[in-house]
Design a binder for these strands. Structure first.
Lengths: 226, 226
DNA sequence: TATATACGATACTCTGGAGTTCCGGATCTC
DNA sequence: GAGATCCGGAACTCCAGAGTATCGTATATA
């Protein structure tokens, strides 16, 4: 990040053989990449960007520092890559379809997803400081942490709109971001846990009313409108 | 923060005079405190906690490092104090009272408050990383940045509730946090500016609907309910 | 087998910045 | 005036951590 990394040639061109794609020697173990990135995310969530050291990551991944620096030119690049790869860990459980928007939103509250989310927001906190210096990191964090949840919400709401459960002029794009934003605030600044009760209070106290439905009773009134 | 600071006696107890409260020598210029804290906040908003150095703060405040370390034992303490003192900069403009909740909320959108807010969220980003290590910092940031806005919102909403404009069972405490949370997300992660248009879209697309009012038209319908 | 590269592990260099100390000068009490 | 403490400024110590180099070993090609 500070000095320009020396150009790393991935193959040598000898005098005798110009076309020489097959590299000699032991091959790089591509599986280590993911293990190192995972270790980086763990350390990141525990100590933040400042507190994180390459040695910690190496120890956690049972790797040598040289192995890490052979693959990423700097600590910053490693972190950016790690955050960018978080998205792939997303458990792609199918969206629920209970017939009512409230039912769908409640069905998405699973202990596993809560725990998973809490760790991700820890990572986000650790990374937020350097976002000002590395805008691509903001994008990566947004794509990996906030957007998946917002997209799920938006899909469920669009379905509700399609079947006439909510009005056609609702601002779905904005409302779908309410939960992730409020959860981020609660975890990062209030340092409170996010439990099922809180999420339900958000759904019944903000989301559904904002979409023109009124709390738990609304699930009994999900017939299409004329 | 790393080594225990030597106990700093604020007065000597001589053999001859036990009660000797008046200190000798030049008095500490208390006005410098605020100037140093302001400088710290400026640097913090520009570079984040990591990037910030005591030298930068000293230069910005036209002070010597010794002057800073005479008043705060460490960089961390300085930052915590600076964030804690942000609250006092709050422009205590009187809350608007236009007769309708929407009118009040819109009246709170002022160019000055937007600009001011943007800077505060920059500071928050710079500080968020070390919040994990210093919970009191989370409290300070919350009290200085989020709570003032939430409190203003809550007051306006309570008034609306009192005059019957919105239902008595609305979850005002939660809804009043929606705007600050969404603005924080937009500034910190999306890195977009917060303009009047966006705030109005939040008011009309989320806040008012969530409270049972339906957008701009609602301001013409602010009569108390039976 | 000879060569080349990857591996984990360890020791090393080097730099930036936290925190300390000293200086000359100013301002206070006595 | 004398001594104490402040000031801004600058030089200094000290250290954690980024990044590099090296070693013995493992695994690949030729």
């Amino acid at each position: 990040m500070k000095r320009k990394p020396a150009a790393m040639l991935t193959h040598d061109v000898t005098m005798h053989v110009v076309d020489h794609p097959t590299k000699l020697g032991r091959k790089r173990d591509l599986g280590r990449d993911a293990e190192i990135l995972d270790a980086a995310l763990e350390v990141l969530s525990e100590t933040g960007y400042e507190g994180m050291t390459i040695d910690m990551v190496a120890t956690r991944a049972k790797a040598g520092k040289a192995t890490i620096y052979r693959r990423w030119p700097s600590k910053a690049e490693l972190v950016i890559d790690a955050v960018g790869c978080m998205k792939k860990h997303e458990a792609t459980a199918p969206l629920p379809d209970t017939g009512t928007l409230r039912g769908d939103l409640i069905a998405m509250i699973k202990p596993q997803s809560i725990e998973d989310g809490e760790k991700k927001f820890q990572i986000m906190a650790g990374v937020l400081a350097m976002i000002g210096q590395a805008p691509e990191l903001a994008e990566a964090a947004n794509a990996a942490i906030i957007q998946p949840r917002a997209t799920a919400n938006r899909t469920l709401m669009q379905r509700a709109k399609d079947r006439g459960e909510i009005a056609a002029d609702c601002d779905i794009d904005t409302v779908s971001l309410v939960t992730p934003s409020m959860v981020a605030y609660r975890v990062l600044l209030l340092r409170k846990t996010v439990d099922r009760e809180y999420l339900i209070s958000l759904i019944d106290g903000v989301l559904l009313p904002a979409l023109g439905l009124s709390g738990p009773a609304a699930c009994e009134d999900a017939r299409p409108r004329g």
